[in-house]
Design a protein around this nucleic acid. Structure first.
Length: 562
RNA sequence: UACCCCGUGGUGUAAUGGCAACACUACUGAUUUUGGUUCAGUCAUUCAAGGUUCGAGUCCUUGCGGGGUAGCCA
């Protein structure tokens, strides 16, 4: 027996913090939560937080709750609650319990009265504008509110009357009594309750006062027994307040840990940006395959696994970094390369006729479904004398490095024969409309006795047997790394890629005829595609998920430059 | 110009005072009936200066750079 030297797994700073607290006995388990406000659709950035929170709970045999932070009735809707739950499940996670911050409104109210009685909170009659003026600035301390020294009795009376609807919206607020001179502005007597007559998506018109985020979040965490309250960096300055409330209340005190949110090059995840894209019709909706929403990626054809892998891959830190979008594209390629069956499809067809092919003969070719996975099996494809090949795969005059089909050249037809091109037919404008070849009967794929070696292999479909389909060629919505950087007088929509969607008619091999909505395949030599929900019995619609790596494209582009 | 956080290759993430590692990109080359895949290789004196130490990416000081914060939004 040799001593196994455990390779120490590298841990991110959140895991390290968790380990410390478990070791020291500060906490006895990992209980997390994902706390979205139901005011919009989840985007790829949320996926990072979801994977983090659910993943941490999973690896430590803890729990992760889903809690809707619904403390602002003017922005929240039930529709979003549904969509968020659906997206989380699609990503492959299941919450241990479902909560709403609004379920805690009664408890929060009781606790507020407790703070008032302890002299830690007061009712302030300043309006929003006056409050702002009293708060001071980043460099100057604030001034105490004239109502700061009311007695607990008076505050309690006023607070109850606030709750009972005696005062107008915005006329008063309950504030925590902390320190108007604190260098941390969050501690300058933050508002705990505002008067707001709005119908809440769950509590209806029961309340006319609503607790703020700061006064709700930590307490909700506490009630649920959360141990690690993981949030994004912009809440760093709120942590002292989070801690203050828990201490003053003497309740279970979770640890807040902040991490850098996901930023991806070429994407714009801001709510305002996404709303504009949808509202002004730059995309077809929140689930447009080009959108940065979870539903967008889902419809585009991304797999939940690829998104989860991506999130693990980019790691968690406190540094505000930008991840290159190719990392995400790479993640979906990596997954689909393993699982997607190969099929042949021609998206920009030109006719190829085999002049020595016996009239009317149809032969079945055997093709492997996935060269990397023997278990994926084989399929049969009809081969005939009338084929379509990709226009791009033929050149009358080709550069030396071009090893596809050229005039007087040879190429292998994937899972078929080697063909030699001897002539082309052109239309009046000189465009090639038909390529004439002979096939080499001894070169059949799988039983090749010709001994010939050709450099190129191209894909094809039999014209007579191919199915006509609609193919939506999606590309990035923005071609620049950071679309939020704009010149004077311009906006991010000026960065929009005019070619982010091209719709073409494609011809696919018969095996694809029964592909169902949601099925993902690789069109050989082209990319990965998924059958879109818009497909009908008459016509299938394929979305391009991501193209294959294109080494030749790079070589060619370089050649054009030099 | 107050407070808080952060600076490690082109991009990210590790290294927990002891040989700067891993992934992605890029570029080579090999393999390949997908110009795909796979495999091999190449690409850094850790923002700067000073200090502590036998030894510093790591600890201390200062500077520089980036981000956050002045909602009765979250």
């Amino acid at each position: 027996m040799t001593e196994s030297s455990e390779p120490r797994e590298s841990k991110n700073f959140v895991e390290q913090a968790i380990e410390e607290d478990l070791k020291s006995g500060r906490f006895s388990g990992v209980f997390t939560r994902f706390p979205p406000e139901p005011n919009g659709y989840l985007h790829i950035g949320h996926a990072k937080s979801i994977c983090l929170n659910f993943g941490l709970a999973r690896t430590h045999s803890g729990t992760c709750n889903l809690r809707f932070d619904d403390t602002n009735p003017t922005k929240e809707e039930t529709e979003y609650v549904e969509s968020i739950m659906e997206d989380i499940r699609w990503l492959g996670f299941q919450w241990d319990s479902l909560h709403f911050a609004s379920d805690y409104f009664d408890q929060l109210y009781q606790w507020a009265e407790k703070l008032i009685q302890g002299g830690h909170a007061y009712v302030c009659d300043l309006n929003a504008e006056e409050t702002r003026q009293y708060r001071g600035t980043l460099t100057e301390p604030g001034r105490n509110s004239p109502h700061r020294d009311r007695s607990p009795e008076e505050n309690l009376d006023l607070f109850r009357r606030m709750r009972d609807g005696e005062f107008e919206d915005g006329s008063r607020a309950l504030r925590a009594k902390i320190d108007m001179a604190s260098p941390n502005i969050n501690l300058r007597d933050p508002v705990m309750y505002r008067i707001l007559r709005a119908t809440h998506h769950r509590t209806g018109d029961k309340w006319c006062i609503y607790p703020t985020y700061d006064w709700t979040h930590g307490q909700s965490d506490s009630i649920e027994g959360i141990t690690f309250s993981i949030c994004t960096l912009e809440f760093e300055n709120h942590r002292p307040l989070y801690d203050w409330y828990c201490e003053k209340l003497g309740i279970h005190h979770p640890r807040q840990i902040e991490f850098a949110k996901l930023k991806l090059s070429t994407l714009l995840m801001g709510k305002r940006h996404m709303i504009r894209l949808v509202k002004e019709g730059f995309v077809t909706g929140w689930d447009d395959p080009r959108m940065f929403t979870i539903r967008g990626f889902r419809r585009r054809g991304y797999t939940p696994e690829s998104i989860r892998n991506f999130c693990t891959d980019v790691g968690v830190a406190k540094f505000n970094s930008t991840i290159e979008i190719v990392r995400l594209e790479n993640s979906i390629r990596e997954h689909l390369n393993r699982i997607a069956p190969r099929r042949m499809a021609v998206l920009d067809p030109v006719k190829l006729t085999i002049t020595n092919w016996p009239e009317g003969r149809v032969e079945l070719s055997e093709a492997i479904n996935n060269p990397g996975d023997p278990d994926a099996g084989k399929r049969e494809i009809p081969f005939s004398g009338q084929l379509y090949i990709e226009r791009d795969d033929f050149r009358e005059e080709a550069p030396r490095k071009f090893f596809r089909l050229k005039k007087d050249g040879a190429v292998r037809l994937r899972a078929g024969y080697i063909v030699d091109c001897h002539d082309v037919v052109k239309d009046e404008d000189g465009n090639v409309i038909e390529i004439l070849c002979t096939y080499d009967p001894e070169s059949k794929s799988g039983s090749d006795i010709s001994g010939r070696k050709v450099k190129g292999t191209i894909h094809w479909v039999s014209a007579e047997h191919a199915t006509e389909v609609e193919v939506r060629l999606y590309d990035r919505l923005f071609m620049v790394d950071d679309p939020s950087v704009v010149e004077e007088g311009k906006t991010f929509v000026d960065h929009l890629n005019p070619d982010s969607l091209k719709v073409v008619t494609g011809y696919v091999e018969p095996a694809l005829a029964k592909a169902e909505v949601g099925e993902r395949v690789q069109f050989e030599r082209l990319g990965y595609y998924i059958v879109d929900i818009d497909s009908t019995a008459d016509k299938q619609v394929f979305n391009r998920i991501v193209p294959l790596r294109d080494t030749w494209g790079k070589i060619e582009a370089k050649g054009k430059k030099s």
